[in-house]
Design a protein around this nucleic acid. Sequence first.
DNA 1: ATAAATTAAGAACGAACGTTCGAATCGCTC
DNA 2: GAGCGATTCGAACGTTCGTTCTTAATTTAT
Lengths: 205, 205
Amino acid sequence: MPEPETVRDFRRAQIIGAARRIVARDGLHALTVSALEGELAFTRGVITYHFRNKEEIVQAVLASALADVEHATVSRVRSSMGAAEKIEALLRSTVRGLLDNVEASMVLLSFWGRIPADPEIAELNARLYERYRAYTRDVLAEGVATGDFVPAAASDAVAALVVGIVIGTVAQVCFEAGCIDPDAVVAEAAGAILGHVRHRAASCA
Amino acid sequence: MPEPETVRDFRRAQIIGAARRIVARDGLHALTVSALEGELAFTRGVITYHFRNKEEIVQAVLASALADVEHATVSRVRSSMGAAEKIEALLRSTVRGLLDNVEASMVLLSFWGRIPADPEIAELNARLYERYRAYTRDVLAEGVATGDFVPAAASDAVAALVVGIVIGTVAQVCFEAGCIDPDAVVAEAAGAILGHVRHRAASCA
DNA sequence: ATAAATTAAGAACGAACGTTCGAATCGCTC
DNA sequence: GAGCGATTCGAACGTTCGTTCTTAATTTAT
């Protein structure tokens, strides 16, 4: 990630940052040029000079949030871990990472409203989740190969379950501030899933 | 649910139905008076005659979808079931019910974008999920009382986990049509959670 | 049959949106 | 310090939005 050198890059980053704050705070529908003027100390001349149009800003906001979320998820799992550890890290670290960057998470949740109307956004979202599911499937297969997991588990369904738990937990925390303890939820989820995919002998004392 | 008798009630239902279709198909931002004119065979005179303003339509759409979803969830669990059956029904029937009425589900997902800006919508959503969590906690307590479940389980976290699974699964199905098999996901989820809250003796052959 | 009330129609309005554009200002080079 | 490109400014434009209002059509009651 190179430091912004030119004025252009600096301004663009500044505008995208303001746009992200607006979207995370008030929703995507509140992202207007006037709102950007208020959030920054600029007039709209600056904004329209550095971006061709508003759609370019919207896409930059989405790309920025997607990059953050991507970085907060899979990259936290170390390859030195065992399969069971990886599954737990996949859950715990991902939820933690998403909630450490609530702004990016809220931005992505805001973009959900555009999925029905915008196939491009739908595909970016689908790719994100599919990548996460694919990684989960790999870990499951790895666990089966090492003999840690039972081979019968339907890895497609379990992968979707893991992703669903992450999505559902983050959504509840983001939309109902204070009502949910994500660490406790993730702990239960990890226990339940590992107890389900691991050989019974390992979990039954 | 009384049949619409007066012309007024009939027209209102007609307009709300069209509004729901628009929101479910294209998102909440696409719900404009002009779009309603197109979806119905009316002019905007009719619409503004039967509704004070657009906000009233929006709230009616939300209330309508909330009622549908509410009906599709808790009401499907029979009180004659055992605790374990209830947990499974809570998962399976709820996901099924939500996906049987994709329109209502998509409407609710569309309204998520308004949660950051609209405390009223945020609370309606929070209430829906909290009621679902409370019911799950009751079932868990019932299972503990009958000796089916281990008493140690943190029911708050497990309840949030159940709701999260429902949300995450429905979201994946709605946003990635065809990629996810909800029945398989729910089956894995039910197996994992029941294996986790049930006494080990019951699940270890 | 006629008067009154209800409902439908569609033109017109102000407000807010994204965009465009010419003038003003800054920063650098020669 | 004059000249020039890069940047900032803010007014103005056309469009679309939700709302309002007048007129016409239809239904209901007497």
